[in-house]
């Protein structure tokens, strides 16, 4: 038996990343997921294009409207993928190791907890990114038809990548805390559903209720209603769907990509705030860093019980 020469090379591919990717790409399931996802997204895009095209006037603006519909459909699919598929890959990353009784033998190797967590994260994100990039060529259909500015793609990409990162890390953290993968997956989806769907829904209900209460007769705006609108915009910035919708609305109205300026009737106050997609990107990146550190700490924590 040869005595191996031991040192952890800094630039070599992480063994966990290599193992997870090899395991994932070796099975037919990965290719089936990719093919089915692409087939569904491209099929629905073409269907949407045909329906929109038939219902639109044969003018440049009509073509642009079709392009906008296709573009935002594709963005919506990317957001759903980032929000629900990325965490699915990480929700079992650590809890499965525990269930399969492989976690202890992994923890006694020379890999640090940070290396284990990082490798689990990038291997899960790697496949999600593959799915995301695979649909990028479909965006050319929207740009061909017009009605969409390349700058709107910046909004979509920032939100999609920040969401994929944050939700994957959220699932990883929950996985590190959970005893079972089923528990980790259910907990993650409950939180993600709450943020992605719950926040816009609550905002919609809250907005309708407060609008009725504050301007019951005239329908005119008041400083209080303006303040509420601004707070609502900040709140809905935390959900990828509503953040994209609000950013696109401000961009279409003012041509301003990075900021928006809420109006406060009668007060003369001019407040410039970051666009909702920037707020989401910032908040999600900060949350990602915190979740990463918490997950590493959790994995590193020497057994106490």
């Amino acid at each position: 038996m040869r005595a191996p020469h031991l040192k952890l090379p800094a630039l070599e591919l992480s063994p966990i990343f290599a193992k997870e990717m090899a395991g994932r790409m070796r099975s037919a399931r990965a290719y089936m997921v990719l093919t089915v996802y692409l087939a569904i997204v491209s099929g629905l895009s073409v269907l949407l294009y045909m329906v929109s095209f038939l219902g639109s006037p044969r003018t440049v603006s009509g073509s642009g409207a079709v392009g906008t519909v296709v573009f935002y459909f594709l963005v919506g699919m990317q957001v759903l993928l980032a929000s629900f598929v990325a965490p699915a890959f990480t929700a079992g990353a650590i809890s499965l190791e525990r269930e399969n009784k492989t976690f202890d033998v992994l923890r006694v190797t020379l890999l640090t907890p940070a290396q284990i967590v990082w490798a689990k994260l990038i291997s899960a994100l790697g496949f999600t990114l593959l799915l995301l990039f695979a649909t990028l060529p479909l965006f050319s259909l929207a740009f061909l038809l017009g009605g969409v500015e390349p700058r709107e793609l910046i909004i979509a990409l920032c939100v999609v990548f920040a969401s994929a990162l944050m939700y994957a890390l959220l699932a990883l953290y929950i996985s590190a805390r959970s005893r079972t993968t089923v528990g980790a997956t259910l907990s993650t989806y409950a939180i993600v559903l709450g943020v992605v769907i719950g926040i816009p829904l609550a905002a919609l209900i809250g907005s309708s209720t407060v609008s009725l209460a504050l301007a019951p007769t005239s329908g005119s705006s008041s400083p209080l209603a303006d303040l509420f609108d601004t707070l609502l915009t900040l709140a809905i910035s935390l959900s990828p769907i509503s953040a994209i919708a609000a950013s696109q609305r401000f961009f279409s109205a003012t041509g301003e990509l990075w900021t928006f300026t809420p109006s406060f009737t009668g007060s003369g106050l001019a407040l410039t705030l970051p666009s909702p997609f920037l707020i989401l990107t910032g908040v999600y990146l900060i949350a990602s860093v915190i979740l990463y550190m918490l997950t590493v700490r959790r994995v590193a924590r020497i057994e106490q019980q």
Partner: peptide, 28 residues
Amino acid sequence: YLPNDFGVYPDQTCAEYVEFFAACYGVP
């Protein structure tokens, strides 16, 4: 360290299993 009840990765062959842990210990 060999625990009394340890698992293996179902998607690895025996050779890959040993190579994987060798990599985790920094064997070139």
